[in-house]
C-alpha cells in the first residue's frame, strides 16, 4: 500500500472547495497533481488527497504577457504545446526532453513540479532564469515571482498554485539550459540556465541559475553582473563562468562532490552563455 493511511481522495469541481478542504484538513491533506512524489513518499501522515484535475487547469496558452501554463498540465502536454515550440528558440521544450522519461512526464504536472521543489529540478532551474511568475490562490488570486515562492514557502500554506507564466521577451533575448547527470534517465547532478537580453549587442538583462548543487536552483548574481553592458565573447563568458565557479554554493552528496560540482558550474555556465551568444548572433544577422 503506497499511502497506508489515506482515507479520502477528493476531486472537487471548484477551486474554492479544493482550498477549503486543504484548509480544513491541515497537514493531513495534500494537493495532488501527478502524485509521483506523494506515492513515492509513502507518507503515513497523508489522509486526504485533493485532486485538481476537474478544475480545468490543464492548458498552455499564448497571452499578451507570455505563455500561461495551468497547474495540472503535464510535462508532456507542455512539451508538446505549440505555444512553446518557438518560445526562446524552444528552450523549454529542450529542457523538458531531458526531464525523467515519458512515463514520468505523462504524470508529473507543472504545479506539482513547482510545489515539490526538488533541488535537482530542471524545470525550476530554467523557470527561475526565465523569470517565471506563479499564480497562487488562497481565496484571492495573486501573482508572484517564482523566486518568491522558494524564498518563503509560507506563501503556499495554505494556497494552491493555479498557473505559471513564462514572460514574453522581445527580440534580442535568448536563453539556454544545460544538464549534467550520470545517465540520461537521471536527475541532474547539476543544471544551469541563463537568460540574456541585449541591446545593440550588449547584455542588458542577465539571469543565470544553477540547481542541483545539490540545493535547489538559485540565481548567480555576481556572475550575471559581470556581463552587464558587455558583449558576449570568449573573455566575458570565461569571466562569468569563472565567477560562477567561485561563488556558487556547492556541497557533496552521494551523487557528486562539491568540488566536482564547482567544475560543472563553470562548464555549464560557459556552455549556456556560448549557446546564447550563438543564438543572438544568429538573430542579428
Amino acid at each position: 500500500m503506497a499511502l497506508s493511511n489515506l482515507k479520502e481522495y477528493v476531486r472537487p469541481d471548484e477551486l474554492d472547495v479544493a482550498l477549503s478542504l486543504v484548509k480544513e484538513r491541515g497537514t493531513s491533506a495534500r494537493v495532488i497533481g501527478g502524485g509521483i512524489d506523494l506515492v513515492r513518499s509513502s507518507s503515513p501522515d497523508i489522509e486526504t488527497l485533493v485532486d485538481l484535475s476537474h478544475l480545468s487547469l490543464s492548458y498552455v496558452r499564448q497571452t499578451d504577457k507570455g505563455v500561461a501554463i495551468g497547474a495540472t498540465t503535464t510535462l508532456t502536454e507542455i512539451l508538446e504545446a505549440p505555444a512553446l515550440e518557438n518560445y526562446l528558440q524552444g528552450v523549454v521544450v529542450e529542457m523538458l526532453h531531458q526531464v525523467g522519461a515519458p512515463p514520468l512526464r505523462n504524470l508529473a504536472s507543472m504545479g506539482g513540479t513547482l510545489a515539490s521543489a526538488h533541488p535537482w529540478s530542471d524545470v525550476i532551474t530554467l523557470f527561475l532564469a526565465l523569470g517565471a511568475q506563479v499564480t497562487l490562490y488562497n481565496g484571492v488570486t495573486r501573482m508572484v515571482p517564482l523566486s518568491d515562492l522558494y524564498a518563503s514557502r509560507a506563501l503556499l500554506s495554505p494556497a494552491i498554485i493555479t498557473e505559471a507564466l513564462l514572460p514574453a521577451y522581445a527580440k534580442g533575448t535568448a536563453a539556454a539550459f544545460m544538464k549534467f547527470s550520470r545517465t540520461k534517465f537521471d536527475i541532474a547532478i547539476l543544471n544551469c540556465a541563463c537568460l540574456i537580453s541585449t541591446q545593440n549587442g550588449d547584455c542588458k538583462g542577465v539571469r543565470l541559475t544553477a540547481g542541483g548543487t545539490p540545493q535547489l536552483a538559485t540565481l548567480l548574481p555576481a556572475a550575471a553582473e559581470v556581463l552587464l553592458g558587455r558583449r558576449l565573447n570568449q573573455t566575458s563568458i570565461g569571466q562569468a563562468a569563472g565567477i560562477a565557479r567561485e561563488t556558487t554554493l556547492v556541497r557533496d552528496d552521494l551523487r557528486a562532490s562539491g568540488n566536482y560540482r564547482r567544475e560543472l558550474v563553470y562548464a555549464g555556465v560557459k556552455r549556456c552563455l556560448t549557446c546564447v551568444s550563438r543564438q543572438l548572433s544568429g538573430v542579428s544577422q
Binding site: 522519461a101 550520470r182 545517465t183 540520461k184 534517465f185 537521471d186 536527475i187 552521494l254 551523487r255
Partner: peptide, 16 residues
C-alpha cells in the same frame, strides 16, 4: 548501502 535504488544505482537506459 546508500544507493539501494534504481534511482541512484545507475544502469544504462536506451539513451545511453
Amino acid at each position: 548501502v546508500q544507493n539501494a535504488t534504481l534511482f541512484d544505482y545507475k544502469i544504462l537506459g536506451a539513451l545511453d
